[in-house]
Every structure is written in C-alpha cells, then in structure tokens.
C-alpha cells in the first residue's frame, strides 16, 4: 500500500461524500476501486462481470454513503463487503440461470494465506486476522477462506471437501468461534 492510498485518505474522501460532497465519490473510487475489483474478480472469475459489479458497488455507494458507520470497520472493509455481497448475489443468480464458467476460471483457494508469515511481520490490518486464522486447524481455515474468496455456501463447501453437510457446518462453526475468541484477546 502506498501513501497515496492510505486508509486515512480513503476515510476522509468517504466522509466528504457522506457529508454531501459529490466530488468525494471520484476520490473514493480512485483510492479503493483496484482493491474492490480484486475481490469481485476473485469471486466471479470473470473480469467483465467483476467490472459490472464494481460499477454497481459505487453507484450504490453514492446513494448510501451517509449510512457508513464505524461499527463496520474500515472504509475499505465496508466497500469490500458491499462488493463481495453483490458478487455473490451475481454468482448465485448465475447458478440459478444454469450458467457455468470454464473450470479454470474458478481458481482454487489455498488453505492458508500465501504470504501469511510476511504479513505477520508487518503492521497491515490483515496481520491480526491472519495470525488468528493460523490458530485454526487446516480444514476450518480452508473452509472459511473458501467461503470468503469463492463465495461458497455450506453445501458447496461440503461437496468440495466430500464431507456431510452437518460435518462441514460444525467445522466452520467451531472455527468461527475460535477465530472470534482469538480476535478478541
């Protein structure tokens, strides 16, 4: 992350937008869109659909900027959340419409953060989360990461791992409880 897209600059731009300054939107977009697009592409596996969702995310933001609350975490976290939800909506409606993308489009999600150790050394916001995820066993960690990055539901996770739905639910639920306990330490 460079100084130009520091979290503070984004928070300030979002605050301007929330305060009714429409020019804040372009700045919010410039500071955040590449990272927001990354999660859309990751979930959808298709750049053009991901850019559609990116468009929808910022149009929606323009209407809802006043609703951003600190309880939601950081500004980038809030934007990622909106985009991730819209991407999953699209993914699931695609499933309903019976559209299948080529298998290679859906990149496998690694069970562990690829550069977890490097990030643990830094002071990035994700470092603490990574540290806590690392305390879960591989199956729990892998399932939570696949849910986040691939938008998989319990049923899809169970299919993917070849375990009964109930087993997958209890893995994930135990993992989430452990994760929360660790994050609150």
């Amino acid at each position: 992350m460079t100084a130009a897209d520091s979290p503070d600059a984004l928070e300030l731009a979002l605050a301007r937008l929330a305060g009714g300054d429409a020019s804040g939107l372009e700045q919010v977009y410039r500071l955040s869109a590449p990272r927001v697009l990354a999660i859309c592409i990751r979930i959808l596996g298709d750049r053009s659909e991901a850019e559609d969702v990116l468009h929808d995310t910022y149009v929606r933001l323009a209407a809802n900027a006043g609703r951003f609350r600190r309880g939601h975490g950081s500004a980038i976290g809030w934007l990622v959340t909106i985009a991730r939800n819209l991407s999953i909506d699209r993914l699931r409606s695609r499933a309903v419409r019976g559209i299948q993308l080529p298998v290679e489009a859906a990149e496998a999600v690694p069970d562990k953060s690829p550069d977890a150790e490097a990030r643990l050394l830094g002071a990035e916001p994700g470092a603490r989360l990574d540290g806590c995820l690392a305390t879960l066993d591989d199956a729990q960690q892998g399932a939570i990461r696949s849910a986040f990055f691939a938008g998989y539901s319990y049923a899809q996770l169970a299919d993917q791992r070849g375990v009964p739905l109930g087993t997958m639910k209890s893995w994930v639920r135990r993992g989430l409880a452990k994760l929360k306990a660790c994050l609150e330490q």
Partner: peptide, 28 residues
Amino acid sequence: AQWEGRLAPLADELEAVPPAPQVWQQIS
C-alpha cells in the same frame, strides 16, 4: 456488520487490479 468488518481484511491479500477507465465513465 461486526463480522463483516472482522473478515474484510482477508481481501488485503489479493493483488489490486486497476479497473478499465470506462468503468468510472459508466459510473459517472
């Protein structure tokens, strides 16, 4: 919202992807 805030930093590990210039034009 709290859980969303907790999990969102996972997205930090993805490499940023600059969008095509026309996306902003379409938003505008």
